[in-house]
Amino acid sequence: MSEKILVIGANGQIGTELVNALRDKYGAEEVIASDINSPIYAIRHSGPFEFVNVLDKDNLHHIFTKHQPTQVYLLAAILSAVGEQKPKMAWDLNMTGLIQILDYAVEFGVKKVFWPSSIAVFGPHSPQENTPQYCVMDPNTVYGFSKLAGERWCEYYYEKHGLDVRSLRYPGLIGWRANPGGGTTDYAVHIFHEALKKGSYQSFLSANTALPMMYMDDAIRATITLMDTPAEQITIRSSYNLAGISFTPAQLAEEIKKLIPNFEISYAEHDPRQAIADSWPKSIDDSYAQKDWGWKLEYDLKTMTEDMLKNLKNVILA
């Protein structure tokens, strides 16, 4: 049986790259990109596209009826920093959207669903170093506790309905193909743009704020690898820890200086995103992902920085 894959939230930082990877793997016509807004030219013209509002049940039902997807990737969400500005909107989109997709996945017999969680599910009382898969989780942002609640719904639908839902707790994601979507880790993308455009950057996080990050190429590979893994190997139906590489703004700046020697970084004071970052882990234990489906990171800080600057330079100068 051929796959028919629906990606909801295709315009975002993850969706833009995931759609391309899935179309390369399954064929352009088998991957339906969808979003509430019109996408970049490449997404809309390399395969089918639908306008989808994840909160509109009639609209969603029409899309499921029309395409009969075998796999659904739900990426539509409001992220951490924006979520603190619009808390009720963030909760509604992140929760109601997920539950409606899970309901339709059961109704239409979808084989597999992917939904991204985040390191934001951890909180100030979670272990900050090498944060384990199972520990105290007391998130203090709307984004964080919507993701934690979402994890419980995903496991619930697996247990109660047999729905094959899979998830990753993404660290901060860094990529050059799309802009970030309003998260606390966005500095690690903005810094590359500003280094190339202006030779300087003011970080909204302090110099020594360590956070887990991951290059987008690794994140996309992890996502597809998880979805390709036989169901009997999946032991976690809430969401898998995914570690990435941990570094501070100062360490990233030093790596950029090796390639742009005159680059300078400064640090803002009293940015509200600092408090969010301070409540998150500094490093993550992803041994379950390694054991269950053979996860292995490819990019470290050095190779990520080199690849980001090389590719982003071409985009900015184009």
Rank of each mutant, 00 (worst) to 15 (best):
V110H: 10
N53Q: 10
T185A: 14
F51A: 07
F64L: 06
S246D: 03
E107A: 12
T185S: 15
P261E: 08
S167H: 12
T305D: 06
S2V: 12
P139V: 13
Q13Y: 09
K258H: 00
S46E: 15
Q85P: 01
D300Y: 10
L6Q: 05
R273H: 15
T70R: 05
A76S: 07
S246A: 00
H61V: 11
W280A: 04
D271E: 11
G172Y: 10
A77I: 05
D286E: 08
N94I: 13
E107G: 15
S200E: 15
P139W: 03
A77F: 03
A28Q: 13
E306A: 14
I245K: 13
G109K: 10
T16D: 08
I5R: 01
C154Y: 05
H161S: 13
N241D: 10
L6P: 02
E50H: 01
H270M: 15
L22Q: 05
D218A: 02
L22Y: 09
F263V: 15
S146C: 15
S167F: 12
I276K: 09
T70G: 04
D286I: 11
P171I: 04
L312G: 00
L148D: 13
Q202W: 12
K4I: 10
N37A: 13
D92K: 09
F263I: 15
K147I: 01
K197R: 06
L168Y: 07
A195K: 10
K258A: 12
Q133Y: 05
A10N: 00
E306V: 12
P124E: 07
S246P: 00
H45G: 02
D285A: 08
T185Y: 11
R169Q: 08
S146F: 10
D292R: 03
L55M: 06
E194K: 15
E298N: 11
K66H: 11
C135P: 02
